[in-house]
């Protein structure tokens, strides 16, 4: 199993969240949005011009900035 930053995941790849870094406020926000360790997510698309990433997690679509996504470590599934 390969562990990478969420920002490095390729489009349409499914991954499992391993670890979350960053300030408490940020992590807490991720928890309440459903991004917790062991949750599954899919990278849906990267917005153009280095913009945020769109991910699907727990049945909802979220946008997250790339440098925030750097703080989320995921392992690619399958």
């Amino acid at each position: 199993m390969r562990t990478v930053r969420l920002s490095q995941l390729s489009v349409n790849a499914e991954a499992e969240v391993q670890d979350l870094a960053g300030p408490p406020q940020f992590r807490n926000r991720l928890f309440s949005l459903g991004i917790t360790p062991r949750s599954r997510l899919v990278l849906v698309r990267r917005m153009p011009l280095g913009g945020p990433l769109e991910i699907e997690v727990r049945g909802t679509r979220l946008a997250i900035r790339r440098h925030d996504a750097d703080r989320v470590w995921v392992s690619v599934v399958g």
């Binding site: 940020f26 926000r29 991720l30 949005l33 945020p52 679509r61 979220l62 946008a63 997250i64 925030d68």
Partner: peptide, 8 residues
């Protein structure tokens, strides 16, 4: 602030 928003 972090942009963590839902795309409904």
């Amino acid at each position: 602030a972090p942009l963590l928003i839902e795309l409904p």
